[in-house]
Design a protein around this nucleic acid. Structure first.
Lengths: 329, 329
DNA sequence: CTGAAAGCGCTAACAA
DNA sequence: TTGTTAGCGCTTTCAG
């Protein structure tokens, strides 16, 4: 910027003002523009940030870059934020709370203006501290107990009830569910919906049919194998995330069992896959774009006015019925 | 930091030195540590970066956050870089060269120490300029003509030859290929391998069997429908990326054609999927971890010594034969 | 509309 | 080992 001042004979103050949208004499405007082009000037955002105490950057923390749900979601969030002049630093903690803690720290050091996080559930106090510092935090997909901050989640309880109810109405009495980690609110809610429907229809709950996985394909595979080897195996399986759904299908294929004649399956997330798998899979579809957009909106709103009350946005998921459900024999 | 100085009665210089790994008297060390804890001090990386002229940040530019190949790859790169104290800003340009240009600019303003990019092929001059500024650039997956910089790619030509040769040996004479955009070096090389094998085996090349997609599922779907509606339709299809592979399978399913009895298919990327699709899909698998690690390694090496000659690392892909290939009737 | 000057939080060179 | 000081590139008063 100094070079531009020298080039144009104007002062630093004037250059700065112009760059930040201020008014200068037409003649000077041209001169500055020319200088910018010739010298290929780009503002140094670090210097600017140091001065303004704003990085114009939002930190995003997700469990894994290999998680379709997360990356997909964040692509919408990024798009929305960039319209408002914010860029994002996306960190993934590889499902490791220790790494999650490091990443939170890193982002604070980088002076992010806000934080978006899909939490492991083990870093409550760290996140609490950030909120205390008045830095906007938005929780995504999962909420944390007693956390006074914005959040965007889906109505897991209701959609889970709907899935289970549908299966029950089709005559299923032994329904298995493969949940996520117990620590994750989302997993708990999906399980609660499952239990609720069992209560409503006076169905016995067999503990053996309730499995907790780690959201990865392999755990879906292993847990499904467990289920299939039960002497009184379930007639339907409800899998509550995408990767575990793949694992379940793999296990079923390998066991040479047919969907849906031998077993019914309801999967989760990822529309494309059900177009490819035969028979086409019934799945729960989450409103990715809405989720992603809302997340961004909440951060921006709080950035603009830190005093607004915190909101928890709950969006509805959709149950898409396809051919992977039948009536048990 | 000033607060710590005040708290401990030491000078700024001493605090700074200690924080950056310098030696201080044992007594002071304890005092500083205590102050850091009490005041919950975190270095301001913006201020540090302004001073040191290093952001300890690498910019990553990929076509899309929805691209499994890219995000997966970058998760390895990030892991490797973070071991060396670098964090990453991942930008995606939604396949839009205009956005790509913006993101390149953004990252320069953010003073990234290096740039990793999966280029659209339309921003050659922008990237060229960065290299001129002596900022390390590593191209991934695709190379750009006359670009004097590091790159990591797979041996697309050879793996494509291998796939086509295998199909030819199985008796296929009408093989279709669905390539990526013509601008992309990787797409060209895969096509060249295809053509090379046709030459070697004196097979006629039918232009109608060569399709160019945009790497998205829908284009795979549409192009495959084209191929299937040909009056003399191919006996095998080679699809050269993951999403288009899904599209192809969808099209085949919808047309009620059987793999492999009616048509053979070879897909690309993404191991998990072939465990789930029946019959299991033959695919080309790229060495994701190696790719990601090498990318990071190249940046770090050049950061440490900017004078080393540029390298293009070419890794071998693997052709995994499964049940989706048969001999044509 | 323009210029001068202070200072954001930190590092690094030098002096003590 | 510790303290002092200048300055990184920018914004932002406050005068002019």
């Amino acid at each position: 910027m100094k070079d531009i001042a020298k080039y144009t004979g104007l002062s630093l103050g004037t250059i700065s003002k112009y760059i930040n949208g201020g008014k200068v004499r037409e003649k000077n405007r041209k001169l500055i523009d020319k200088a910018i082009r010739e010298l290929d000037f780009k503002v140094n955002e670090m210097a600017r940030g140091l001065k303004t105490n704003e990085s114009k950057t939002i930190g995003i923390i997700i469990p894994s870059m290999k998680n379709y749900f997360c990356t997909h979601l964040m692509s919408y969030t990024e798009m929305y934020l960039s319209k408002f002049g914010y860029s994002v630093i996306i960190c993934n903690y590889r499902e490791d709370p220790k790494v999650e803690r490091e990443k939170i720290n890193l982002l604070m050091k980088k002076q992010v203006d806000g934080l978006i996080v899909v939490p492991s559930g083990e870093t409550i106090s760290e996140i609490q501290e950030i909120i205390l510092k008045k830095i906007p935090v938005v929780l995504v997909d999962r909420i944390l107990p007693d956390m006074q901050c914005d959040a965007v989640v889906v109505n897991n309880f209701d959609i889970s009830k709907k899935v289970v109810e549908t299966l029950v109405e089709r005559g299923h009495k032994r329904i298995a569910i493969i949940c996520g980690p117990k620590k994750v609110s989302t997993a708990k809610e999906r399980l609660n919906g499952f239990l609720e429907m069992h209560k409503k229809y006076h169905l016995e709950v067999d503990e053996k049919l309730i499995k907790f996985g780690d959201y990865y394909m392999h755990s879906g595979f292993m847990l499904c194998k467990d289920l299939l080897s039960l002497e009184n195996r379930p007639s339907a399986i409800f899998v509550t995330n995408y990767d575990m759904t793949l694992g379940v299908i793999q296990a079923i294929n390998e066991a040479n069992i047919k969907i849906p004649s031998d077993i019914s399956v309801v999967g989760f997330d990822n529309l494309p896959i059900f177009k490819v798998i035969k028979p086409s899979l019934s799945i729960v579809s989450q409103p990715m774009k809405e989720l992603g957009d809302y997340v961004a909106k909440l951060v921006i709103d709080r950035l603009n006015d830190p005093t607004i009350p915190t909101k928890v946005i709950k969006l509805e998921a959709e149950f898409i019925m396809k051919d992977s459900i039948s009536t048990p024999n």
